[in-house]
Design a protein around this nucleic acid. Structure first.
Length: 872
RNA sequence: GGGAGCAUAGCUCAGCCGGUUAGAGCACCUGCUUUACACGCAGGGGGUCACAGGUUCGAGUCCUGUUGUUCCCACCA
């Protein structure tokens, strides 16, 4: 048997244990019809990513669930992988290129993409390695990448069939454009932020008139593209102008005044400038009125088609335009105005709404089934409230802009015919236009939104579009565990994609977690510099401590603050278990793990506690209440097993009675082993390490069977009796502590009880744990109680002859105080019990519990009264 | 403009279906080299569960409102 060091050192075990698991192939699963399926697909981290605490949380959750189910006998698979992260990865490599003084355009598309692949091969695996440090039991043989061959095939099939069904189209719409990333973005990639700005009121002169209309705008530079001014059709102030024209200042363009219901008469001046190319509403208005579209910004947000302003950056143009309008006397006023500004989720640049020819996924038909499955419960959110968030978004979802003007990603499988303009979308690369047969076709240069491939992840990782045994067995997956910030990006899109192509939900449960914040409650970010590297925490406290910290004291779906000190508590916990194991091993002579033939009262007590813990841990894990489950196991190990049971075992181990010692050893080994199993999903490394050092059958703890509640090992009656012995011990300890009696002082005790047999059975434990000399159990009090210190529980009176410490008056005062409290308790209970409504309406067990409590209070009062009398 | 969360001990948080005297970790106080562990042991102090109503035999827990706070969504230029 291995010698264990005094202090547990995670560094000496984690790598070795992880390697052992890998070598054993325990993470790998195959479809197995003799077992129930359990599957999780990882939310694929970006290949550019570094592990952060959010990943630590997310992956700890997945690992706890997977390890639990695996031990429960499921064919449990956790499929890992990474996401190609279009924009982020491309930006990363472009930055590298800039350092070498070249741009991606210098390289050309093919060479650039080649370069990104190289980068990916070299650095992309880092985050996967970091996941391993956490103990993640992913099936690495199934590791995938959103741009590997299989995923690419899935994306192609997915795109083409959507196109064939008319659910993907290309068209000119208003989209969000990031001038820095130089690409279109989807709506969810734009973060809105309230910002202080201005509201500029500008006069437009009515053609051939001295009359002016005043329009207000927050983005004056867009006026260069105005092609109308709109008023409400029923607005008496302006009805005479409808059909006339006004002169657009600076550009001196004649533009019509139109009537449209969209205009809010109450807001601003009631006149709206219409810029179809640069505002979504104006775009709609433009369509209704067949207005000209003038695009006044290029891809870099520099002015085009804007006369003298051409070439200026949008904000320079804004300043220039304001100045010029002022000079012309056409700037009426400037109001302070806070409005919401959209920023690129990746780079923070203010996005520009512009019309652009892009690819879209038509959402309406896809959203319906995706909402049904939540409504009818085929798929559920944990916590439930996120279903509302999801539904609300789905109900109002707009078409998804999926094309990106990037090079890194899945290139759109569409070919434009130079001759007839037809677009050929095909599963296999075509060599001619499917319509006119011309060979002069060019592939659409755009790539797809990164989330397009992630949407297919739950089935593409199992081989779709092929029908594979994996897909049959593991789809729908059991649960997915994203943070709430990616419900729209990922969860929603997986659901409608799964419904459309698999005809079933991608997962039965979406277990949503919150985000990890710093100790001040702020989001961790690079710019704040408040990020904590999980690797540092692992180095310092161990992966188990980090995992346990992520899981405990946290309720599902809520954010958590990260305190390194809490890891210290969990490291201490690991050390506690370590030392408990050392104690068990130090006393071990058996090499077989089995319960002793005869069980002592304290054995039945700990087994009952173990039974309760076992039941509650599983119940909570099944409900995704990981925090509660971890608290149960923590309390059981520390309080019940270490503080009580190990101490209780010492008299037997040291009794000199070989049989008694052997039975204690067996008990310790048995309970410790059960503890290791229960704790393993949470703290896999230390539990495996200890288990390997203990007598065991089988190769690894991680593939042992998870404990289940067994009524045969639950002894509620005996456990309750033993609790009385413990209560007596506590009472004596408390009295001694109050009077500062050192442990070395060992007075004899007299325990007075109506149930002496209970205490007879616990004599040795009382002696040891309450630091007593000899212990006498009796039905009646000793003669000279007036010179003794007493302690009372609801089942016993304990007398200690500590004559020199006794201050009769103080004793009397203390007992009187306790008595008062006990009487108040009893009074409260009795009034409750005498309330006919309570006894009639409250459930039977509640009434029974209150009765029992009242009985105990009475017993305690009787004992206290007797103690008081003994003083006289 | 909609929607959601949170408010419990000095701090950070648990408290699931309403049912003991409301818990944990850290911090604090008093003892303790009790041969697994001072990353420990024993004992202890500390809470009007934001506020106001209501439902109920019974409310930290359910309902309504108020206040404070955080977040999400939304095309009023």
């Amino acid at each position: 048997m291995a010698e264990l060091e005094k202090v547990y050192d995670p560094k000496k075990t984690e790598d070795r244990i992880y390697k052992m698991w890998l070598d054993g192939g325990y993470f790998h699963a195959e479809p197995d019809s003799s077992k129930l399926p359990f599957s999780i697909v990882i939310p694929p981290p970006n290949v550019t990513g570094q592990l952060h605490l959010g990943h630590a949380l997310d992956n700890t959750i997945q690992d706890v669930l997977t390890r639990y189910k695996r031990m429960r006998g499921y064919a449990a698979v956790w499929v890992p992988g990474t996401d190609h992260a279009g924009i982020a990865t491309q930006a990363r490599v472009e930055k590298e290129l800039r350092g070498e003084g070249v741009s991606r355009h210098d390289l050309g598309r093919e060479a650039f993409v080649e370069r990104v692949w190289e980068w990916k091969t070299e650095y992309g695996g880092r985050i996967i390695e970091q996941l391993k440090l956490l103990g993640s039991s992913c099936d690495w043989e199934r590791e995938r990448f959103t741009m590997d061959e299989g995923c690419s095939r899935a994306v192609r099939e997915f795109f083409v069939s959507l196109y064939e069904k008319g659910l993907i189209y290309k068209g000119e719409r208003i989209i969000n454009w990031c001038p820095r990333c130089v690409t279109a973005l989807s709506d969810v990639e734009v973060e809105h932020e309230e910002q202080a700005g201005h509201f500029w009121h500008i006069k437009y002169r009515v053609t051939n008139s001295d009359e002016f209309v005043v329009v207000a705008t927050t983005r004056p530079e867009t006026m260069l593209g105005d092609t109308a001014v709109a008023v409400h059709p029923d607005d008496a102030r302006y009805s005479h102008l409808i059909g006339k024209t006004v002169i657009l200042p600076l550009m001196n363009r004649e533009i019509p005044v139109i009537a449209d219901e969209y205009v809010d008469r109450e807001f601003g001046t009631g006149c709206v400038k219409i810029t179809p190319c640069h505002d979504p509403n104006d775009f709609e208005v433009g369509n209704r009125h067949d207005l000209e579209r003038i695009l006044v910004m290029d891809n870099d947000a520099k002015i085009i088609n804007g006369g003298k302003y051409d070439g200026l950056d949008r904000y320079d143009a804004r300043r220039a335009i304001i100045e010029d309008l002022q000079a012309l006397g056409q700037l009426v006023k400037i109001e302070e105005h806070t409005h919401s500004v959209g920023k690129c989720e990746r780079c923070g640049t203010v996005v520009e709404p512009i019309t652009s020819n892009q690819w879209f996924v038509k959402m309406q038909p896809l959203a319906e089934p995706a909402m049904d499955v939540v409504r009818d419960g085929r798929m559920k959110f944990v916590p439930e409230r996120f279903a509302k968030t999801y539904m609300n978004w789905m109900e109002n979802v707009r078409d998804w802009c999926v094309s990106r003007q990037l090079w890194w990603g899945h290139q759109i499988p569409a070919w434009h015919c130079e001759k007839c303009g037809h677009i050929t979308v095909a599963r296999d690369d075509p060599d001619k236009c499917e319509k006119c047969g011309s060979a002069d076709i060019k592939r659409d240069p755009d790539v797809l939104d990164t989330w397009f491939s992630s949407a297919l992840w739950p089935f593409s990782v199992f081989g779709w579009p092929d029908r594979t045994p994996e897909l049959d067995f593991w789809y729908p997956t059991t649960v997915v565990t994203p943070g709430y910030e990616i419900i729209f990006f990922w969860v929603a899109r997986m659901i409608f994609s799964g419904m459309e192509f698999m005809g079933d939900v991608p997962f039965r449960t979406a277990f949503i977690h919150g985000i990890v914040r710093d100790d001040k409650g702020r989001k961790m970010s690079k710019s704040l510099g408040n990020g904590i590297d999980p690797q540092d925490i692992i180095d310092q406290y161990g992966a188990d401590a980090l995992r346990m910290n992520m899981i405990s004291g946290n309720s599902p779906g809520s954010d958590m603050r990260f305190y390194p000190e809490r890891c210290e508590a969990m490291r201490n916990f690991a050390n506690k278990i370590w030392n408990a194991a050392r104690f068990v091993m130090m006393n071990l002579t058996t090499d077989k793990n089995e319960l002793p033939a005869a069980l002592e009262p304290e054995d039945k007590w700990i087994l009952s506690r173990l039974a309760a813990a076992t039941r509650e841990i599983s119940e909570n894990l099944d409900k995704y209440e990981l925090g509660l489950a971890s608290a149960k196991i923590y309390d059981f190990i520390w309080d019940d097993f270490c503080d009580w049971y190990i101490e209780l075992s010492k008299p037997r181990l040291n009794s000199g009675d070989a049989d008694a010692a052997a039975s204690a050893q067996k008990m310790l080994l048995y309970v410790l082993t059960e503890i290791l199993k229960l704790l393993h999903p949470f703290m896999p490394f230390i539990t495996e390490e200890i288990w390997q050092a203990l007598p065991h059958e089988g190769d690894a703890l991680m593939i042992q069977t998870y404990p289940e509640y067994t009524a045969a090992l639950d002894f509620p009656r005996e456990a309750a009796d033993f609790e009385r012995v413990m209560a007596a011990i506590r009472a004596v300890r408390a009295r001694r502590a109050e009077m500062s009696v050192p442990p070395s002082k060992r007075p004899s005790l007299t325990i007075v009880s109506d149930n002496p047999e209970i205490f007879e059975a616990g004599l040795v434990y009382i002696a040891r744990l309450a630091y007593a000399g000899d212990v006498i159990v009796s039905r009646s009090a000793p003669a000279d109680t007036d010179s003794m210190v007493s302690a009372a529980t609801d089942s016993a009176r304990i007398y200690m002859p500590l004559r020199e410490l006794v201050d009769t008056e103080k004793e009397r005062a203390r007992i009187t105080k306790e008595l008062e409290k006990a009487r108040a308790d009893l009074e409260r209970l009795e009034s409750k019990l005498s309330n006919a409504e309570f006894t009639a309406k409250a459930p039977e067990r509640v009434v029974a519990a209150e009765r029992e409590r009242a009985d105990k209070a009475r017993a305690l009062i009787a004992n206290l009264e007797a103690s008081l009398k003994g003083l006289d």
